[in-house]
Computed example of a mutant assay.
Amino acid sequence: MAAVTRWCKRFCKTDWLPTLQLIRHGSKAVTRHWRPMHFVRQKLMEVTKYIPPKPLIPERCIKPQVKQVEEENGYVKLLRRDVEQAFHESKMIAICQYNEVPANDMVLMGYRLRKYNIHVKYFPNEVMIPFLSESKYKNLLPLFVGRNLLLMSPETRAQEMLRVLRGVPQINLLGACVDNTILSKQGFTNYAKLPSMVTAQGEVVGALSLMTSQTSTLLQRGPVHLTSLLDQYVKQQNCESVEAKETGTLD
């Protein structure tokens, strides 16, 4: 320390001060330490704490609640657009319960349905429920509880769809909508048993042609009967005239 002091004095004589100065600070005496409050005093402070009176009208009744409008995700908007387009273009929509199905069976089922122009689609319930609640298909909402598959087709291929679904027991039919008519599972099964449109048209044409033939027969029955009666009357008159001539010649 003495050497440092002598070194500083020697340089100070030449009007030069060092940039580094050694200053020693003494330790400060801490006389007050934090002490915890006594338990009795804590109880007293809690008891005597000021409690402001509650307002007569709750604040939530005075100030209206502001609902935060969350912006939809772009992917959700795309799915909703696809749902609207699929429902607009499809005449037959079947809702099925989707259980665990092997991947190979699922691919094979989709291939078999695609041959009849029936497409398999999956949309999450977060997209289907808002769409159905604002559309004319709102009565289908009770069917969308778990994971569902939608079988859509621009044609009414009910028989073919049921034939393919029989080979996949893990997928259960819940209901359907055919030509804007909501059907249950049993109603859709009964609808599939109906004949096709071509067969029904043939049956209607056959029934109409039968009715027209019967009508023509009934209309012709009267004149034919009248004609036969007139012929019989003419024959009877001729026979009477012949008999009268024979009796006149004999006399």
Rank of each mutant, 00 (worst) to 15 (best):
T156R: 05
V145M: 04
E243A: 15
H225N: 12
I95T: 12
R221F: 01
A176T: 12
V198F: 07
Q159N: 11
W7A: 08
D15G: 12
L113D: 01
C12I: 01
K115Q: 14
I51G: 07
T181Y: 02
G146F: 00
S135E: 03
Q65S: 05
T199V: 14
M1T: 01
K43P: 03
F39K: 06
S133R: 15
L108N: 11
T31P: 06
L17I: 06
N125M: 08
V76S: 04
N172D: 12
S133D: 10
M37Y: 11
K193T: 09
L22I: 13
T31C: 08
S133G: 03
N73D: 02
Q85I: 05
W7N: 10
T5K: 10
P58S: 03
L132S: 14
S209E: 04
L194Q: 15
L162V: 05
R10L: 13
P58D: 01
R35Q: 15
R6C: 04
K54L: 15
L210S: 11
E71W: 05
R10T: 11
R166E: 15
K43L: 09
S135P: 00
N238L: 12
N172L: 04
R147L: 03
T31Y: 10
P52T: 03
T48P: 06
D105G: 06
H119T: 02
T199F: 08
R157H: 14
P64T: 04
E203I: 12
V168P: 00
K121D: 08
C8S: 03
L210Y: 05
N139L: 04
T19W: 07
L229N: 02
K138C: 11
L79E: 01
G248Q: 11
Y122L: 12
A158I: 11
M92E: 03
I182Y: 09
E89I: 04
K49M: 01
Q201P: 03
K43D: 10
I23W: 08
Q214D: 13
I129G: 02
R166Y: 10
A3Q: 13
T199H: 09
V168A: 07
P154M: 04
L165C: 14
R163K: 10
C177H: 02
R221C: 14
V224N: 13
N139E: 13
T19P: 14
R112K: 09
H88G: 03
P223R: 02
S153Q: 07
Q21M: 07
V76C: 02
P52G: 08
I51S: 15
V242Y: 01
V224M: 09
K185V: 11
F39S: 05
T189V: 15
K9N: 11
S241V: 14
K185W: 00
Q68R: 12
S213P: 00
V164Y: 01
E84V: 00
V30M: 02
F188A: 05
K13V: 02
Y75C: 03
H25P: 08
V66N: 08
